[in-house]
Design a protein around this nucleic acid. Sequence first.
RNA 1: GUCCCUAUCGUCUAGCCUGGCCCAGGACACCGGCCUUUCACGCCGGCGACGGGGGUUCGAAUCCCCCUGGGGACGCCA
Length: 464
Amino acid sequence: MSDLRVRFAPSPTGYLHIGGARTALFNYLLAKKEQGIFVLRIEDTDLERSTQESVDAILQAMDWLGLSYDEGPFYQSERSKLYMSKIDQLLAEGKAYRCYCTPEELEAKREAAQQNGTKPRYDGTCRNRSDQPDAPCVIRFKTPLEGATSFVDRIKGTISVDNAELDDLIIARTDGSPTYNFVVVIDDAEMGMTLVLRGDDHINNTVRQIPIYQALGYPVPEFGHVPMILGSDKKRLSKRHGATSVMAYQELGFLPEAMVNYLVRLGWSFGDEEIFSMAELIEKFSLENVGRSAGVFNPEKLLWLNSHYIKEKTPEQLAELTAPFIENLSLSIAGGPDLARVVKSLQERAKTLVELAEGAEFFYRAIPDYNPDDCAKFITSAQLELFSRLRALFSSADDFSAVPLKEAFSALLEELGLGFGKGAQPLRVAMTGSRGGPDLFELVEILGRERVLQRIDSALERIS
RNA sequence: GUCCCUAUCGUCUAGCCUGGCCCAGGACACCGGCCUUUCACGCCGGCGACGGGGGUUCGAAUCCCCCUGGGGACGCCA
């Protein structure tokens, strides 16, 4: 048991996306590895945009990935009393002040600064005003005017910014509600975080938050900033690049093991190893091996990992996972061939559960969907005798299993003077509707005598 | 624009701190071959990178500087 305390603090304004999932994962892994505590906190200070659906979606996605938390979820919306008292404290100590500038005035100042070629910052108009009129105002934090704020980032090393670059940030809005940069500090401090590990888009926030810790007399935690995830065009990952929601990948037929493995390897490495179970990650993960630069999200590699984990499942596990996807195809599994045997025959051919379900389709249709081109080639009057003989063979076979069936089939082909491929392809198309798919006699066995005969009859019908 | 971060194959990365073992290793993708009744899997092989320029050094992917590229931040959002 170490005293490490880390957290994941999403704002419930949408689904858990790929980037958020990775920071959550890194925090989780670190906590597990160090036997520390992983806290979940919901940052819902923006009441306008926060929704319960988003909270549920985030919780569901974390659960799917296997990221359990030790404390929480805590909701910032329930902690306003604490925040208010801290604002009062800063005001009383002269470390914060009321600002009466209107949004319009600020907007004008920002524009002027942009024109000037300098960073738009609040100019401190109200910082030293002596009157305190009873008018709408926000509360601003007095950022140190001189010196620099620096910290040693656990991933990036020393980061330092001149305080002159910073401005007096708003810690409470006109309606009195506290803002993000303020509540984050209070929560991270009050919840005893020893390390704040978040996306590197927060680096700028970190240097603004450190003076607040100091003003409030809190110990400053350690920080680590994880690089961003980019799309294939090196732009920040967004919907334009495809699915960004973690749960969208679940619907696409991805396994959580694959997602976790992919996410962790995007920005972290352990020598030449590529495949990691959660248990191995907990053992091997460390911040030292996290890269410092942004990475491009690569769906191809995710797909490869997914096919790897599909192959690793037992047929029974896979059957359970695939069943809902088959039902999505409006097919009924009940009454059809045994699903575990079906997925086993398809297992090494599918990269996703969706592909697996699609591959299983012909098993669960009364008559397969015949591919016109393949039929035109393999189910023709030239195959009339073949199919008739096959019908007789299959109906009279004593042992309806792959090996003896294949032997009998080979003997028949020899008798007819046909090569194996000449006979196998027509049979395959008759059984599955097209070329491609599992081992022919394996699938024949799985279908069983009744369905096989049905399909041969159906093929014979098509010929005539 | 200003500030912060960052820079090895198309992509994820190893190597960099502690220069020589690196004319740079692995993985995905791609290409070719083998296996095979099909499609896949698998196996074997191939293509492919130290962003540029200056230093330092006997020697630099590794250390220093500049340039350039990329990302982020600049909100009464989080």
